[in-house]
């Protein structure tokens, strides 16, 4: 009996680790194969199997070439500008809206919340058919600011993260501010905003990753790829004549996902909790 139990126990432990190792392998295999290929020279790539390790792990030639061919210097600059602007704007817009919706009772409060919620159920790709027309009329096509403004418009997650956070900040704080004669602006910027910091960090990471990785709208609205590539759309360079030079393409792909990797390693916990927050209870 005990021996049987032991066998059962070890089988379960084995199965457990086998599943974890197997699916981790599945998850990173496509990425690892890309890294391997990115370090190969042209001749090496053509003469060896894709899974053969490169002769030298110091062959950065592909990375340099990919970086130049895809104009990634410019792309990183554009992505950086977009990222910072979108984050700054959506932090202010999102926290302010959440403040009003959480702290003030007024007719239409519920309606506004529902309008934002309903918006999330509309599939983004379908909407772009007519958003494109609006962007054209606003002369937002091929301008970085147009793209930035559009990216701020689709922000609903952060608002909900902020509202949830506001619910846990006692109203007595606002009231003591009112007693001291502080204006609502002062209360918001001096008292509440600093307390929101954890929520702001969480939503910035989520929004930041989303913005950095966005390519569909960037491709539609920043059509001039010479002037306005973002990191994601700069990879379109490799569509076409360069389409089979995978040692180069893989290098480009790896460069494009390095920032996401760094952010992931630094902010793992916040990313996980940001995704989970609010979607768990109830």
């Amino acid at each position: 009996m005990t021996a049987l139990q032991k066998i059962g126990k070890y089988t379960i432990i084995f199965l457990k680790y086998f599943s974890l190792v197997f699916f981790s392998f599945v998850a990173i295999l496509p990425i690892v194969s890309c890294v391997v290929t990115a370090f190969k020279t042209e001749t090496e790539y053509q003469n060896t199997n894709v899974m053969t390790l490169p002769e030298s792990w110091l062959n950065f030639g592909n990375f340099v070439e990919a970086f130049q061919k895809a104009n990634m210097g410019r792309a990183f600059l554009n992505s950086f500008i977009v990222l910072v602007s979108v984050l700054v704007i959506s932090v202010f817009v999102g926290t302010q809206l959440a403040y009003v919706l959480n702290r003030f009772r007024f007719p239409g409060n519920g309606l506004i919340r529902n309008l934002f919620l309903f918006a999330t159920l509309l599939p983004g790709v379908a909407m772009q058919v007519s958003v494109f027309e609006i962007m054209t009329n606003l002369h937002f096509i091929n301008t970085l600011y147009g793209y930035i403004i559009m990216m701020c418009g689709t922000d609903v997650i952060s608002i909900y993260i902020y509202i949830q956070f506001f619910e846990n900040i006692p109203v007595s704080l606002d009231e003591s501010g009112v007693m001291d004669g502080a204006s609502y602006f002062t209360i918001f910027y001096r008292i509440l905003m600093p307390l929101l910091k954890p929520a702001i960090v969480t939503s910035c990471i989520l929004k930041g990753v989303g913005t950095y990785n966005e390519y569909y709208a960037a491709n539609l609205y920043l059509q001039d790829k010479k002037k306005w590539p973002t990191v994601a759309t700069s990879l379109y360079t490799f569509v076409g004549p360069l389409g089979s030079k995978y040692n180069l393409i893989c290098a480009g792909v790896i460069i494009s996902l390095l920032p996401a990797l760094i952010v992931f390693i630094l902010f793992q916990k916040q990313i996980y909790s940001g995704l989970t927050a609010g979607s768990v209870k109830g």
Binding site: I31, V231, L235, S256, A260, F264
Partner: peptide, 8 residues
């Protein structure tokens, strides 16, 4: 990690 990679 695959979740954090851009679509292209």
């Amino acid at each position: 990690f695959p979740f954090l990679i851009n679509g292209i």
